Amino acid sequence: MQLVGLNPHDHGDLSIRSVPRETRRFTEIVASEFAGAAVCCPIFFAKNADTGELYAGALFGFEEGSPLTGGPGDQTEPFVSLDRKRAGFYIATDHIAIDEACPRFSRTEGEPLFQSDGSPAPALRAVQAVLTQLHSGKSETDAFIKAMMDLRLIEPIDVSLSFDDGERLSLQGLYTIGLDGLGELDDATVVSLFRAGHLQLAYTVALSSRQLPVMAARHNSRLSQEAQ
């Protein structure tokens, strides 16, 4: 991937197509997305392969290319991550850079990025807002994860599933927040977490794992339909 700085001189006629549908199994999200993601996705932590540091992510399915966040025939997605909304756009120091090879970009269709006078068009302003949310959300999320780690509330989770056709599935390298650990916190710590905005996030993560059996049922139903 080669990034280039976005500017009206080189990209004045560039447009973007609509946000692509989710195909990834697991996608990084930030704290402000937890509530929206938990409606349909389990939220887990995973280790960055390069740094070993934990990050938060939404689990959209058990396999790449097979999301399980909606029912059969759903035309709208219940949750669209900020990372997907910014597809093709990146922050490079203080500027926006793009991956010109990203299929989202076009010079013949889509919404224009710039007005005729070179100022940002509504589509680009929307992307700028998303990038701002991601940038500010990263530090907020890192602070939340650190607080959970300091209290030893983050624990590994073993996701082992069996399906009617005999398929067995195991997801490795995921972590969650234990409800037992949250329930054992002393009052002073609970108040401190509440005031920092971390308590609600912690419960959102812990309770989001209840989406796992829902997704498993959808996967099981999909296998049954494919077998017919």
Rank of each mutant, 00 (worst) to 15 (best):
N48I: 10
E77M: 08
E64G: 00
L14Y: 02
D186Q: 13
L207C: 05
K146Y: 08
A206V: 02
A35H: 04
H135T: 08
D94P: 00
G61M: 02
V4L: 12
V190F: 05
I43S: 00
T204D: 02
R168I: 08
S224D: 14
F34A: 09
H11M: 06
H198C: 13
E64Q: 14
I98S: 10
P72H: 12
I96S: 03
T176V: 06
T132N: 05
A202K: 00
S208T: 09
F114Q: 06
A129C: 09
Y175V: 10
F105C: 09
C40Y: 07
V30Y: 04
R218V: 05
R25G: 01
E53M: 11
F144D: 00
Y175I: 07
L223E: 10
E167L: 14
L179C: 07
V159L: 15
V127Q: 02
S32W: 00
Q115T: 14
G137Q: 13
Y203G: 04
G52C: 13
L153S: 08
Q2M: 10
S209Q: 14
F45T: 00
R84V: 13
A101D: 10
G178N: 12
K47P: 03
T204C: 15
F34L: 15
E33D: 11
A196P: 02
V30P: 05
F163W: 03
K146W: 07
A58L: 10
Y203H: 14
G166C: 04
G73F: 12
F44S: 01
Y55F: 15
C41L: 04
F114M: 05
I91P: 00
R24I: 06
L68T: 03
I145C: 05
F194M: 14
H9L: 12
D10Y: 00
P156H: 06
L131D: 09
A216C: 13
H9F: 13
I157F: 07
L169I: 10
L199R: 03
V80I: 14
V130I: 09
T69E: 10
F144Y: 10
E53Q: 15
L153W: 06
D117Q: 11
L68Q: 09
V4Y: 08
L134Y: 01
C41I: 01
A37W: 06
P67E: 04
Y90R: 14
D165K: 02
V80K: 04
G183H: 11
L82A: 11
P112N: 12
S18E: 14
G73T: 09
S224I: 12
